[in-house]
Design a protein around this nucleic acid. Structure first.
Length: 275
DNA sequence: CATTTCACCTGGTGGC
DNA sequence: TGCCACCAGGTGAAAT
C-alpha cells in the first residue's frame, strides 16, 4: 500500500519523466467517481497546461501547472493513490490496463495513466488562485522538528499507533511504517500516546525519519502490488522487522513477532523489544 | 471536541 | 483441482 516512501518514489519518477511536458488532453472515466472534482472540470482545467513540477505532500502527489505562457496555473492537480492506485508513465501504444480511470495525454507521445483496481484512490484539483498551495492535512514527518513532533502527542488519550495513522497530526505514515518505526523505537503500538516519555518520543521521531529515508532509497515496500511510475517494484519489504512477520523470530531477540488487530488495522510488534 | 467504528472496493489467499 | 468466504487497509462519515 502506498505510504510516504512509495508516494515519494512515484512522484519523483513522474517528475523526472513529465516535467516541462504539455498536457494535450485529459480524460477521466465516469464510472463511480474516484474524483473529488468532477471529471469535466478536471479535463477542462488540465488540457493545454504545462507540468512545471511534480512532488509529494503527505500521501498526495501534487502537480504544479503552468499556462502556456509559463504563468502559474489556477489549479494544482492532486492524486491520492489510496490502497492500490498506480500512476503509470506509459507509451500511448501500450494497451490500456483494466481499471484505468484517468489518462493524461502528453506532448512526448506518452500518457500518464491512473489505474486503481480497488478505487480507494482520489483525483482532484486544488485551487491556487486566491489561496495557498496544497499543504496536506498534517505535518511532514521528514521535516518536522523534534519538539513539534513531541507536541503532537501531548495529552492524547489514543494509542500511539492510532495517533501515527491520523493524517491530521502527521501525514504520510501508514500501517507499514507505523509498525516499523514503533519497533525501532521500542514502543508497544497500544501505548497511550500522551503517556510516552519525552526521550522515547525523540527516539520515535528519529526512527520514523530513518525508516522513511531508508525506504525511499529502496524504492518503497512492495507488499501487495505496489509499483512505481515505470511499473518497477520496491525493495524495502526485505528490510521489514515486524510488518507481515507474525510468528517469525524477532531479528533482535528471537522472540516470536505478535500480530493483533488494533486501531482497525493489522498491528505487528515484538512483545519483548516493545514495551 | 476527541476518539472509535465502519463502509467503501475487489484481487489474492487459505481452507475445504 | 476448484470454489468461495474472507482478508487487506487509507480515508471520511457516522457514531459514541
Amino acid at each position: 500500500m502506498p505510504e510516504l516512501p512509495e508516494v515519494e518514489t512515484v512522484a519523483q519518477g513522474v517528475n523526472d519523466r513529465t516535467q516541462g511536458q504539455r498536457i494535450l488532453s485529459a480524460v477521466f472515466s465516469r464510472a463511480r467517481e474516484p474524483f473529488k472534482t468532477d471529471p469535466e472540470t478536471m479535463s477542462a482545467a488540465l488540457a493545454g497546461q504545462r507540468i512545471a513540477r511534480v512532488h509529494r505532500v503527505g500521501k498526495h502527489i501534487v502537480f504544479d501547472l503552468e499556462t502556456p505562457h509559463r504563468k502559474p496555473a489556477a489549479h494544482q492537480f492532486i492524486v491520492h493513490l489510496g490502497m492500490t492506485g498506480r500512476l503509470l508513465y506509459s507509451h500511448a501504444d501500450i494497451p490500456i490496463p483494466p481499471h484505468t480511470h484517468g489518462r493524461l495525454t502528453l506532448s512526448s507521445g506518452y500518457e500518464l495513466r491512473f489505474v486503481d483496481a480497488r478505487r480507494f484512490g482520489r483525483l482532484g484539483l486544488h485551487t491556487v488562485e486566491h489561496t495557498e498551495p496544497f499543504r496536506g492535512p498534517g505535518s511532514e514527518p521528514l521535516t518536522i522538528s523534534p519538539e513539534d513532533f513531541c507536541a503532537l502527542f501531548r495529552n492524547r488519550k489514543l494509542s500511539i499507533k492510532a495517533a501515527l495513522l491520523n493524517q491530521k497530526l502527521l501525514h504520510g505514515v501508514g500501517n507499514i511504517y507505523a509498525d516499523e518505526s514503533l519497533f525501532r523505537a521500542g514502543i508497544r503500538p497500544t501505548r497511550i500516546a500522551g503517556s510516552i516519555s519525552h526521550p522515547r518520543l525523540l527516539r520515535l521521531h528519529a526512527a520514523i525519519q530513518t525508516v522513511l529515508r531508508h525506504a525511499i532509497e529502496l524504492g518503497g515496500s512492495s507488499v501487495s502490488d505496489y509499483v512505481d511510475a515505470d511499473g518497477v517494484r520496491g525493495f524495502f519489504q526485505l528490510e521489514h522487522r515486524v510488518y507481515d512477520r507474525a510468528g517469525e523470530p524477532c531479528r533482535d531477540c528471537g522472540t516470536e513477532i505478535h500480530k493483533i488487530v488494533h486501531a482497525g488495522r493489522g498491528t505487528h510488534y515484538c512483545p519483548k523489544c516493545q514495551r
